[in-house]
Amino acid sequence: MSLSKEFTKGLWNELPPFRLVLGLCPVLAVTKSAETGLGMGLAVIFVLTCSNMLVSSLRNVIPRKVRIASFIVIIATFVVIVELTAQAYFYPIYEKLGIFIPLIVVNCIILGRAEAFASRNGVIPSALDGLGIGTGFTLSLTVLGGIREILGNGTIFGAEIMWSSFRPFTFMVEAPGAFLSLGLLLGIMNACSKSN
């Protein structure tokens, strides 16, 4: 019961980019298409779950004073694993995500979960918390990427879906579109949760 709660809270109540408003840089940068959003999301799920598990299992060993530095080293280790794996096996997506793969290290969501949750709870709840928050993050990135790709390019996951006379709003796949669509989605989320 409570374990499934750890997982599901990441999907709505604490949905990362919208509710926590953390880790915005990758959200804006990699959502040019649904595909890059999904790729980034999967990388974050892996790093978040693994680092949450490791932080939680070491929580009684790490001295409080150096905990932030220790968390950063743990997170950076998993980020390097993702970086090298992506470079070896998923090169096209690695190229598209570019500098934002190493920047997962400084994604505040991951450090935030390590500090706020994993350092106070057991291994299994921490793993579920990581999976849940990571899944919420992935869903948000994919949805935002999908919206921007449809409006800015007329495609979704690279497949044409709009009618033939549709003229794409190119600015949606550029920086202004990222800020505007995230801001509007955030507003819609706020409006929905208020009416509930």
Binding site: P176, G183, L184, G187, K194
Partner: peptide
């Protein structure tokens, strides 16, 4: 500002407009 947009949401929209200007 409309209630739902207050805070971060309107901040992001403003950033988007600024980004459009810098474009």
């Amino acid at each position: 500002v409309p209630k739902a947009l207050r805070g971060t949401a309107i901040g992001l929209i403003m950033a988007g407009l600024m980004s459009l200007a810098f474009f």
